[in-house]
């Protein structure tokens, strides 16, 4: 379980880091996949990893697994929307910079997870 969590953390971090240069330059297909994944699930996955709706087998019992996925997606989309909307209203429109901001947010939230005690889990009744 801890291993799976680590894999997800590494994958999320990898997507966030890769998105920074790809938001400026790179093959279109790769940019589409990486940046699309970041905007769809990057910051939210990092958040859910910090919140720790675990362990996975009890997740099926309490609905924590679908809730985690739902929050990961909704939070990522909401963050992407808010960053983009803030840029347009502030007249600072720059999509690559917006993606970089999302990457930094993702990495910052993942950083919080590293500092967090490993035993903290959400209790489910």
């Amino acid at each position: 379980m801890a291993t799976e969590r680590s894999y997800v953390s590494y994958a999320t971090a990898a997507v966030a880091i890769a998105a920074i240069p790809l938001s400026f330059v790179g093959p279109e297909g790769l940019r589409l996949a990486v940046i699309g994944l970041l905007m769809l699930a990057g910051p939210g996955t990092a958040l859910v990893l910090v919140l720790r709706f675990d362990p996975p087998r009890s997740a099926h019992a309490t609905g924590a697994l679908p809730l985690s996925i739902a929050i990961a997606i909704a939070f990522s989309l909401a963050m992407s929307t808010l960053v983009a909307t803030a840029m347009i209203y502030a007249r600072l429109w720059s999509p690559p910079v917006g993606v970089c901001v999302l990457s930094i947010v993702t990495l910052a939230i993942l950083g919080l997870e590293l500092r967090r005690p490993k035993h903290v889990l959400v209790r489910a009744k």
Partner: peptide, 29 residues
């Protein structure tokens, strides 16, 4: 990179479209 709220209602609630715009702009698609 701008909004013209006089065009139609969509530009007064632009969140979803800015999301698509950022995606399009950042991926080059």
């Amino acid at each position: 990179g701008q909004l013209d709220p006089t065009l139609d209602a969509y530009f007064n609630w632009p969140g979803f479209f800015t999301l698509l715009g950022m995606f399009s702009g950042a991926t080059g698609v």
